[in-house]
Structure formats: structure tokens, C-alpha cells
């Protein structure tokens, strides 16, 4: 038999960026504990739709924890209470009958609310555009094996590259800082030999763009690392800092 539970939801509703939002209370009854969190919201939305109300807007796509599209703050925790889990991979068996669940959007000055739980994360794209790439045009690449990369370095780079860009680091940071996101990208590319030629310029321009976009400053609270669904480590932030100082003080171009 599947177990079912009854829940009270308090969901942030906000019609648009310029509107005022508020928490609205809904019931979610007979929720199977095998369901995912988003499937639970699907049911609430079906009921809202049939009752002539506006369903709750929330972002999602792959529902398998890799696209980085989903994400809300659930009872004060980004992506909910489970470690190493995106919201779409959070299952209802982690909740108990009678629970009240408060669901809020990511909150940061750099992420404007579009509607309800949906926020605009284009700031993260802008940061990547500022230098989160290696400048190689299609065509002239040498054989993949012409560059040897020690396995442990490749693994470290992969650890950093696993970032899904969901924004949970910003959402969970007490200061709404995006440094884990940027640190991960700068690290990945600084670790790999292919990324070294541009490492200095990249660090300077990505950090500059981050500052421009109004994210907060890291105060080493480690909440981002604890909340990151891909367990990206704050050692990447340290590496970014290192790259940044190195670039700022020893890179000959101004």
C-alpha cells in the first residue's frame, strides 16, 4: 500500500515583478509519499485549475536533477531539507502527515521574481558571458590526446564543472552571494591546461561582472556548499580568490 499524507502549504504568490506578493495557504491532501515534491505541486495546481484559480507558477524541466531549472526555498532551505538533492528529486517520504510547508522563491536582488516561485536568473548567464569560456573557434582544435591532463586534475575540474547553475548557492547564502557559482567555473577552467592562457583575464572580468550585478559578498558561511545539490566545494571559492589576486596584482595587462 502506498502511504499518503495530508499537508498544509504556504506558498509565495506574486503576480509579477511589480506586484506585491504574499503567502497563501493551500491544502495538499492524500499525497502519496512516493511522489516527488514537484508532483505534489502538480496536484495542487490541478485542483486550483479546476476550481478556477490561477495555478502556482514554478520552474522545472528535466525533473532528474541535472538541468538546474527547478528550485524554491522549502521551509527555509534551498531545494528542501535533503542534502545533495534538487527540488525535483526531493520525495514526499521526507515529510510527515500534518506538516506545514512554506514555499518561497529564491531571493536575491540579482534575481527578480517573474511570477510566484519563478525568478529571473539571467544574471548567471551574464557572468558566464563575461569570461566563462575558452576562446577557441570551431575547427582548429588539436587532437584530444595532445594535451595530457593528470587524472586527479581532470577529476577536480569535473567536480567544479558539475555545477547545474540552479542558483541554490545564491538563495542559501545569507548574503545572496554567487561566489560558489563563479568560483566553480573559474576553477574548472583554471585547473585545466586549456584554460590557463586566459585564466587571468577571465578571473578579473567575471568577478567584475558579478559585482556589477548586485550579488552579495561571501563571508565564508559555507551554507552554499551545504545546500549545493552537486556538493560543489568552497575550495573553489578559495581558488577563485587566488586566481583573482594573482591576476589583479601580477598579470601585466591592466
Amino acid at each position: 500500500m502506498t502511504k499518503t499524507i495530508n499537508l498544509t502549504l504556504k506558498v509565495w504568490r506574486q503576480k509579477g515583478p511589480e506586484h506585491k506578493g504574499h503567502l497563501e495557504t493551500y491544502r495538499a491532501d492524500h499525497i502519496s509519499t512516493d511522489m516527488s515534491f514537484l508532483e505534489m505541486i502538480d496536484i495542487v495546481n490541478d485542483n486550483l485549475t479546476l476550481d478556477g484559480d490561477d495555478p502556482i507558477a514554478f520552474d522545472h524541466d528535466c525533473r532528474e536533477g541535472i538541468c538546474g531549472m527547478c528550485g524554491t526555498v522549502v521551509n527555509g532551505r534551498a531545494h528542501g531539507p535533503e542534502k545533495e538533492t534538487t527540488l525535483c528529486q526531493l520525495h514526499m517520504r521526507h515529510f510527515s502527515d500534518g506538516d506545514t510547508i512554506v514555499i518561497e522563491p529564491w531571493r536575491s536582488r540579482a534575481f527578480k521574481i517573474i511570477k510566484d516561485l519563478v525568478v529571473d536568473r539571467s544574471a548567471l548567464d551574464k557572468i558566464i558571458a563575461a569570461g566563462g569560456y575558452i576562446s577557441v573557434n570551431t575547427g582548429g582544435a588539436p587532437d584530444g590526446n595532445s594535451i595530457l591532463i593528470p587524472q586527479d586534475i581532470a577529476e577536480l575540474a569535473m567536480d567544479a564543472a558539475a555545477c547545474i547553475g540552479c542558483g541554490a548557492c545564491v538563495a542559501s547564502c545569507p548574503n545572496a552571494s554567487a561566489m560558489l557559482f563563479i568560483g566553480a567555473k573559474i576553477s574548472q577552467l583554471a585547473l585545466l591546461p586549456q584554460g590557463k592562457p586566459e585564466a587571468a583575464g577571465r578571473a578579473l572580468s567575471m568577478v567584475r561582472e558579478m559585482d556589477r550585478l548586485g550579488f552579495g559578498n561571501c563571508t565564508n558561511e559555507k551554507e552554499c556548499e551545504a545546500e549545493c545539490p552537486k556538493e560543489i566545494s568552497i575550495t573553489n571559492i578559495a581558488r577563485m580568490n587566488r586566481e583573482y589576486f594573482k591576476a589583479g596584482y601580477f598579470f601585466s595587462k591592466k
Binding site: Y133, A141, I147, L148, I149, P150, A154, A157, L192, Q194
Partner: peptide
């Protein structure tokens, strides 16, 4: 494969550093 390596795609490597 060459193109992706050049872009910094962290493909798995053997102990000797080859793909």
C-alpha cells in the same frame, strides 16, 4: 572530441592523463 577537449570539457582521463 578534439573540439570539446579544447573548450575545456572535463572528459574522464586514464592514469597517464590520456582520454
Amino acid at each position: 572530441i578534439d573540439q570539446c577537449v579544447a573548450q575545456g570539457v572535463p572528459f574522464a582521463r586514464d592514469y597517464g592523463g590520456l582520454l
